[in-house]
Design a protein around this nucleic acid. Sequence first.
RNA 1: GGUCUCAUCGUCUAACGGUUAGGACACCAGGUUUUCAUCCUGGCAAUCGGAGUUCGAUUCUCCGUGAGAUCACCA
Length: 477
Amino acid sequence: MTIVRSRFAPSPTGYMHVGGVRTALFSWLLARQAGTDGTFILRIEDTDKVREVEGSIVQIENSLRWLGIEWDEGIDKGGPDAPYLQSERLTIYKEWAQKLIDSGRAYADPYTSEEVEAFRQLAKDEKRPFLYRDHRPENPPVWDGTQPLRFKSDPKPYKWTDAVMGELSTGPDAIDDFILVKGDGYPTYNFCHIVDDAIMGITHVLRSQEFIASTPKFLNLYDALEVTPPTLATLPYVMAIDGKKKLGKRDGAKDILEYGNEGYLPEAMANFLATLGWNDGTEQEIFTIDELLEKFSLDRVQKSPARFDEQRLLWLNGQHIRLLSLDDLYIRSLSFWSKNALEAGEARQKQVLELVKDRLKTLADIPTITDYFFEEPTPNWSMIEGNKQLVALGKEGILPLLQQAKVALSESDYTPEALQETLNGLLETTGQKPGILFSLIRLAVSWAPFSPALNDTLAVLGKETVINRLEVSINAL
RNA sequence: GGUCUCAUCGUCUAACGGUUAGGACACCAGGUUUUCAUCCUGGCAAUCGGAGUUCGAUUCUCCGUGAGAUCACCA
């Protein structure tokens, strides 16, 4: 079995969105599969200096690390095939380009871009496909590095096996004389990724579906370079939720780091992305990172595109929050608490966290769901009005109930068990239904639309606070 | 237009050619002696169409249809 060397090779043109991150994740999972000793490489493809966005590299690294993806070789780590920044490898590409020139498989492009554009337009007008090779010059000039260098292709049909898509094939029209080195001296992706993958000993190339059409060109170049192509694996698109387009920045694809700010857990995101186009064949839905590492395989990756369904991500996030230990959850929750909560201290926050843990969908829910534990709520009569049963009682019905509750609760112990007994006793002495009595007490101490179980809530609030709030609420009537 | 890919509930998906086509999200209805966004139970809901191969097609073949991609001195 071959030892996997896989890579993720983004260009530094901005933030990372879910589509790109998923490709990285799958590549990483493949290399780090349990029981294998593969290597995962991060290579930065910065050969388009026009589209480069400053700070992208750091952002890419942060995005991968946020998800838990760590690489073995990269620009910050070095490695046997350093440098890992393509703009620092220009002499290598020049050597390989020279090899192609020497073997007659590359030539200087004598045309201006306007002339090429005119050829293209002509083909379009005549409704036939444009192929540069139809205009291949008979006596190309010697390449001086200022003209584009083109690949002299050898058009023919190709059949190949894709690890995800299966058998693929194309006719000779898919192959043309593409540019290897641009007029500015930088190589194109089409050329340098093949050179780098060969030098770096990459065994598996995972990429998104848009590259399927250019794969025959790559195969033709591999032939010309006498290099054996790596295993190719084409991942289906991640589509925008309307299902019409592949997800892209222009269609509102968010920066992956945004999800962290919005209270999503990286392991939930990893679970979500992994199961967007992959499943293990069982009915398991929740996967930890370790389980993904153990179970992931390319042959169970879906061929058809999948939509990005945030509802499912939200559900998964809630599931993963529940999987966290209290200590772990606390550490991750730190940037989400309100100021009052932070002042209340770690012990208090953990106590509250324990109570609301099962109700959280995202960490960003924490402030709205825990406010009343850390600050005095304002009595809000409209919340009573929102409850049909309570409204029916009227103020004159509510007042004695609250007063009785205050007496009983001021005499109770404040463990959840004791409080439950007290509350049950209260049901008997007042002769009220729990739906009325408990709703009323809950509102009077929290004035929140929802809260955990009443006895637990009271226990965490403590006697003094409970009695105070009951009094405030009574007076507000 | 050329080239290529894909096609099961609304969504993500399962089903060595033989299943009442399964699960999950979402939604709806009940339940858990308070609320509820947790939890439990139940419900709704799908094989794009047409031929062919076969005793038998979601599954194999072909033809349609639909969707998407690509055809850059971008990656």
